[in-house]
Simulated scan of single mutants.
Amino acid sequence: DRLVELSREKLRRLGLSAAQLTELEAREATTATFTVPSPASGVVLEKMAREGQYVEMGMPIYRITDLSRLWLMLNVHERDLPFVSLGQRVDVEVSGLRGHHFEGAVSFIDPVLDTMTRTARVRVEVPNVQGLLKPGLFGAATLFAELASDGTLATPSLPGEYACPMHPLQRAEAPGRCRICGMELKKRVPAKGKAAGKVLAVPREAVLSTGKRTLVYVEWWAEREPDGSIRHDHAGNAKKLAQPQYQGFEVHLAPLCSAFHRKEDGTLHKLGDYYPVIEGLPTGVRIVTHGQFLIDSQQELSGKPSLFRPQGGSTDGGHSGH
C-alpha cells in the first residue's frame, strides 16, 4: 500500500487528475504510456523532447504560451508619462496588419526611467481573440489621455481591493486568484479615478510664448469699463466700437493636446491641436488666432502691455531724439 500511494503521489505531481488515476488503477493490463495534461492552455511554441528520449523530473518538454492576450511594450518619453495611467485605453496599429485596429489597455508602468533614452516602458494588454497578432510584431500605439474639467488627466476607475501582481487590471473585491495566470490576488488600494469633462482650451496658433511668459490676445468689439466689464448704454445694449480693440491675457496652460473625432468605421480624424487653459483667460471671449504678432508689435509701439513688455511703456529706452 505504501508503494502504491507513493506512485499515486508521483503521478499527481506530474499533473494527472483523480479521474486519470482511477482509470489507470482500473486497467486490467499495465501500459507504459499515459497522458500527462499541460498545466496551462495555449499554443505549443517549442518542443524540447522527442519520442524515446529519456527525461528527468524538472526538465522542460514543451514551451506553451496563451496567445489569446498579448503584451505590447511601449517606450514612453518622460514628458508624456504624466498622461499615462493604469487602465487607459490604447489604440494599436501593427505594421504587418494594415487595415486592422486593435484596442488594448495600459496594465503596467515601469517605475524606473531609462537614463539613456529618457523613456519608461509601458505595458499594454491587447486581446487577440482572432489570433491575428503574432509575438514579435512591431506596432504603434495611440494613448487617449482624456482631460478632466480642471485640465488634469482623467483616469479610469479601478474598483476592487485585490489585484494580481502580474496583471494589475485583474481585480476583485475578495481574495482569490488571477483568472489569467493563477497568481494569488494581493490587497491594493482601489483607484476611484477622475471623470473626463469639458475644459477651456485655445488653438495652438493663438498662443504667443517667450518660454517663460505665455500670452493670448482677445478681440473686443464693445467698450470696456476700467474693471474690464462691458459698457452699456441707457437701453442696456452694449456700446459698440467702430474699430476692434485687442487685449493680451497672460495665461497658464497645460501641455499641448489634440482633439480627435471617431468616425463610424472606427478611424480617428484629428481636429486640431489645443492648449487647455488652467487660468488667466475669461470665458465667452473672441480670441485672435491669426495676426497676433502684428497686434503685439502695435501694442508695444503704442506703449501698451505686450508679450515682451508686460507693464507697457515707451520703447525708446529713454533716448528719444538721439
Rank of each mutant, 00 (worst) to 15 (best):
G15M: 07
F144A: 14
A140G: 14
R2F: 14
P111W: 10
F102T: 00
P159A: 12
F144I: 15
L271A: 10
M116Q: 15
L241S: 06
L21H: 02
Y54D: 13
E51D: 11
G284S: 00
G96T: 14
P310L: 06
I230Y: 12
T31G: 15
M59T: 15
T117R: 10
K304S: 07
V76K: 04
K263G: 12
E184Q: 10
I295F: 05
M183A: 14
G58T: 00
T117H: 06
R188G: 05
Q311L: 13
R179S: 15
S38V: 04
E9Q: 14
S7W: 13
S297M: 11
G228P: 00
A238P: 06
E223T: 02
L143C: 00
E219N: 05
K194P: 00
L72W: 06
E250D: 08
L294A: 13
H101F: 09
E223M: 06
K10H: 15
R79C: 09
H319E: 08
D150S: 02
T115L: 15
R123V: 08
P82K: 02
C257T: 13
S258E: 10
E250K: 06
I109M: 07
L253S: 01
I64F: 06
R69P: 03
V76E: 03
T30K: 13
K263L: 15
E205P: 01
S229W: 11
L185F: 05
L86D: 03
A238Q: 08
R231K: 09
T119H: 04
N237F: 12
E279G: 10
E184A: 11
L16Q: 05
A49L: 13
T142Q: 09
V90C: 00
L97R: 05
V202D: 04
E225M: 15
K192I: 10
V36H: 08
P82S: 02
R89F: 06
R13I: 14
C164S: 03
L6V: 10
M59I: 14
L45Q: 12
A105L: 12
G104R: 02
F260L: 10
T31W: 12
F34Y: 01
Y62S: 07
G182V: 08
G228F: 04
K240C: 03
P82V: 01
H290G: 11
G248I: 02
E146A: 12
P175T: 09
A145K: 01
Y54M: 14
G280D: 03
V44H: 05
L6T: 11
A191Y: 11
E264L: 11
L256F: 07
R118V: 12
G266N: 00
E161Y: 15
G58D: 00
A154H: 02
S17L: 01
G284V: 00
M166R: 15
S209K: 04
M57R: 14
S306N: 04
K186N: 09
Y246Q: 04
R123Q: 09
I230M: 11
V288P: 00
R118G: 08
S209M: 03
G236H: 02
Q88R: 06
G248W: 02
R309T: 13
R118A: 11
D150F: 04
W71S: 10
L158H: 05
R8G: 04
K239N: 07
Q311K: 15
L70E: 02
E146M: 11
P159I: 10
L86V: 06
L137I: 00
V76Y: 03
V285C: 01
E9Y: 12
P305I: 08
L301I: 10
V92I: 07
G312H: 02
V277F: 00
Q170P: 03
Q247K: 13
S314G: 09
R188E: 10
T119C: 07
